[in-house]
Every structure is written in structure tokens, then in C-alpha cells.
């Protein structure tokens, strides 16, 4: 049996090509993540589910350098992890863990893609550098 997602309704799983689950306002077209039942822009409640694109660009990033307080449920043995906002073109910016935690290998504007990664005995979503757009740390 595959590992369970950290939350229902966050991403499609199990799936060969997993997608984040957002919502789209039928009135004004605004896309939100996670899915919500009303539109934060035009206040409409006429919204539909939308599976988001799998690739985007890194809008901004940081590296979490200390173990957060509860409710953080990551491993006791703390390893710094990357965090960023990824711009999914024409859709929305998504806050996400990054598979890379080395500042020399992260830059604004780099191409990234959705991956599903282990988190304890569950799985969560993250973004990883797209093939061919990984930053060469030796040149950064």
C-alpha cells in the first residue's frame, strides 16, 4: 500500500503524474491553492476544482535553518530544508518545500517541477530543479 498524503485534497496520489489540487473561480477566473470554496478576489462562491500545472519557476526561496516548533512533525534529527514560492504560469504562486537546501544551488527564476517526497511515514509535495536547469554550484 502506498504511503498516505499529509492531507486529503492537497494533491492527486497515487499518480504517475501527480498534480496539486487548487480551485478556480468561475466568475473571475482566479486560481487559488489549496482549493477553497470561495474566491478571495471577487468574493464569489461559484468555484470549481482545478488540477494545477506541474512546472514553474522559483519566485523566491530560503533555507529553514532550525527545527520549527510544533505542530511541525518532521524528523527529530533536523536537517535544514529549502522553502520557496513557485510561480505556476497563468495560475498561482504555491508555497512549497524544495528538494534542494543548498543556497548555492538555488536562484530566483530557475525552472522547477512538482515531485512527491517522503515525509515521515507519509508523503508530501515539493518542487525540484527541472532537468537541465539545475544550478551548477561550482559556477554559482
Amino acid at each position: 500500500m502506498p504511503a498516505q498524503p499529509v492531507a486529503d485534497g492537497l494533491f492527486t496520489w497515487p499518480a504517475d503524474q501527480p498534480r496539486l489540487i487548487g480551485s478556480r473561480c468561475r466568475e473571475c477566473g482566479v486560481v487559488t491553492f489549496p482549493a477553497q470554496r470561495s474566491c478571495p478576489r471577487c468574493t464569489s462562491v461559484d468555484v470549481e476544482e482545478r488540477l494545477l500545472g506541474r512546472t514553474g519557476t522559483l519566485y523566491t526561496w530560503t533555507v529553514q535553518g532550525f527545527r520549527p516548533k510544533p505542530p511541525y512533525a518532521g524528523p527529530e534529527e533536523f536537517e535544514p530544508y529549502g522553502v520557496g514560492y513557485v510561480e505556476l504560469p497563468g495560475e498561482v504562486l504555491v508555497e512549497t518545500r524544495l528538494t534542494v537546501a543548498d543556497p548555492d544551488r538555488l536562484r530566483i527564476g530557475m525552472a522547477v517541477e512538482l515531485v512527491i517526497v517522503p515525509f515521515g511515514d507519509q508523503v508530501t509535495y515539493a518542487f525540484a530543479p527541472s532537468e537541465g536547469d539545475a544550478v551548477d554550484a561550482s559556477r554559482a
Binding site: W61, G74, G84
Partner: peptide, 17 residues
């Protein structure tokens, strides 16, 4: 709850971003 559990709900992180 997932937002806190997976380590994204940290004010210091936001300010850095």
C-alpha cells in the same frame, strides 16, 4: 494542519522569502 506539520508555517521563513 498539514501546513504546520510540514514546516511551512514559520514566520521567520516568510520574512526571509
Amino acid at each position: 494542519a498539514w501546513y504546520g506539520e510540514t514546516g511551512l508555517m514559520v514566520t521567520t521563513q516568510f520574512f526571509a522569502l
